[in-house]
Structures are given as C-alpha cells and as structure tokens.
Computed example of a mutant assay.
Amino acid sequence: MNWDDTRIFLALSREASLRGAARALGVDQATVGRRIAAMERDLGAKLFLRASDGYLLTPAGESALAAARRMESAALELQAKIDGQDEALSGTVRVTSTDSIAIDFLIPAVAALHEAQPGIRVDLEASSQMLNLTRRQADIAIRNMKPENPDLFARRIAQWPVALFASEGYLAARGEPAPNTEFAGHDLVAYKGYLDGGKGLTLLDEPTRQGRIAAALNSSLLVRRAVAAGLGIGEMPVYMGEKEGLVRLWPGRTRKANYEVWLVTHPDLRGTARVRAVAKFLTEAIQGAAD
C-alpha cells in the first residue's frame, strides 16, 4: 500500500462515505471508489462493507487501519520537519479560530500581513470545532482553551474579563435583573457548547434556575448578535459587548474565569518562516485591539 492509497483508505475510514472522503481529499467520488476497489484487489481482501449508515471496516480493514495510521504519522512527521526548516516567506498557512475572533482581529491582521508579505497566503477557517493540528488540518489555531495534547505548542496570548450584557430594547421592555434572584422573570441567551457539557447554566457565576433560555447558540458571534437583537441577557468578553453597543449589567462584577485566548501550533512548524510571520501578526492584533 503506497502513501496515496493510504490517504484515501484513511479518509474513507474516517468519513464513512465516498462523498465525505472525496470532499476531505479534494477529489471526486469516483476516484475514491476506484482506488479503494484497486487496493482491495491488490491486497486480496475486502477492506470495507457497504452498510445503510455508510462504509464500515471489515476485520481486514481494521488490521490495515493500524498500519495506515503509523504510515500517516511518519509522513506527517517528515513533512512537519521539512516545513520547520523552510525560511521562505511564501506559501500557505492554514489558520482556524472562532468566528468572533476571526472577524474582530484575524481578518484585519491578515490584511496587514498581506501588505507586508504578499507571498504568504492565509487560509482561514472559522469553526467551533478543534481541528487536528497533528494531522495538519491547520497550522495555527486560535482558541479560547488550552489543548490537552502535550505534543502541541500552546501560548496564552490574551485574557479578557467577561461581563453581563443586554440590549437597550430588552431593558426598556423587561428591566434589569437584580443580583441573587437567579434571573427570575428574564430571558437568557446561552452558549450551546456550555449546555451540551451537562452543566447548569450560570451567568457571571450566578445560577439561572429562575430564568428562561430564549436561545442556545453554537458560536460567540451568534450569542452577541442574539443579545443585540433583544432576545435576552447574555455574558461575553467586555470588548465584545462594547463593540455591539450593548448595555453592561452589574458593572462592578465580572465572571471569575476570564475568557482566554491561546495560540496553538505544532512544535515542528514553529521554526517555519511563514508560520512565524502569521503567528506574529495574529498575536499582535489580538493583544493590541482589545486593550
């Protein structure tokens, strides 16, 4: 099994559909199907079973998967070490971040970077999912939590206080909640990822048992826009609330835990000139713009 075949095999094992594997690899479905069929003929074994819920690995496919992952790991390690010695200020750098940070900081930073280093292309993906840096799905990640993987290099580049906000329209209609009432009689805007974790919702560390969740949203940008639309009360970093023109509630109070911003890269890529340049511009933008 060569590396090109291995990439196709791994993509189909992860995506469980020809369409998903083709999309991940940037090829057409017919190519994936044809290459998998050729691999099975060459190996003399069936690697996948076609089921109602997609392509499932056979016992032979499970055995091949372990070897394929080792091959992938070796190939990615080799590529990372080669990239790490690249001193050219040109080429593509893949960046992933949340939508709010991407809009508020990263896009202006990429524009400034392009003026200074036009040979560097930045591919920016705004997503609430943690793309896999070890599999080179991204070169730089800007996230609000430190990754658990000890093999990645992570540096906290900012931490912002979190406060409570509402729109002027909401407050005119509903008034301001009193502290220690658990938001009785008020509508709330929640971050869906927090609710999915099974925790009871708190805002500025106060329980919300007497309030009503009007909307649960899966991104910080949607949360702040929902609060701005008057859907309810929500918490967010102070700079976000001020940027939206919202009214800060309980102004002397902030959440105990600040909103942290982490820059994450693969250690082997830290020495790459284009990755260093992009990381520098992004870091300076984030550290300077929300002061």
Rank of each mutant, 00 (worst) to 15 (best):
N132K: 12
R135G: 09
A21L: 08
M39A: 05
Q137M: 15
E72N: 11
R50K: 14
T96V: 15
G33R: 04
G33K: 00
S100N: 08
L25V: 13
A45F: 06
L65D: 12
L124D: 00
D123V: 12
T96R: 13
Q29C: 04
A21C: 10
A66K: 14
T98Q: 00
L57I: 09
L124C: 03
A112R: 11
E72G: 08
T98W: 01
S97L: 05
L43D: 07
R50H: 12
F105S: 11
A75Q: 04
I82W: 02
M71D: 09
A64S: 08
A38W: 04
A66I: 15
D28A: 09
E40K: 00
L49P: 13
L47Q: 05
V95T: 09
L65T: 12
R121H: 13
R34N: 09
L25F: 10
Y55S: 03
L124T: 01
G84R: 00
D123P: 10
T98S: 05
G20Y: 06
R19K: 04
R69E: 10
I82K: 08
I120V: 11
L56Y: 14
Q85D: 10
T96H: 12
D53I: 06
A37L: 03
L106V: 05
H114R: 09
S73V: 12
I107A: 08
R136S: 06
A75N: 04
L89S: 06
P108R: 03
L47K: 04
S63Y: 06
A60H: 13
L113H: 13
L56M: 08
T92D: 01
A112I: 00
L78I: 07
E40A: 03
G26D: 00
L76H: 03
T92Q: 00
A21M: 02
T31L: 07
A21Q: 08
T58K: 04
Q85G: 06
D86F: 07
S90H: 14
D86R: 12
E87V: 06
D86H: 02
Q117S: 02
L124W: 01
A116N: 12
T98L: 01
A45C: 03
L106S: 04
S52T: 14
L78S: 12
N132M: 07
G119A: 13
S128R: 02
S73G: 15
L106H: 10
S127F: 09
I36G: 03
E62K: 15
T98E: 03
A112H: 14
L78M: 06
L131C: 01
V110Y: 07
I101H: 01
M130E: 06
P108F: 04
Q85L: 05
L78R: 11
Q79I: 03
A126R: 08
Q85I: 02
L131Q: 02
A75Y: 11
Q129Y: 13
T98C: 00
Q29Y: 14
R70M: 12
P108S: 06
A88E: 03
E72K: 08
G54K: 05
L124E: 01
A68C: 13
L133E: 07
V32F: 02
V122T: 05
L106F: 04
A37P: 11
R34Q: 12
E40N: 02
E87N: 04
V110W: 11
L106A: 11
K81W: 09
F105D: 14
D86E: 07
H114A: 07
D83Q: 10
V95P: 09
A51C: 14
A126T: 10
S97T: 04
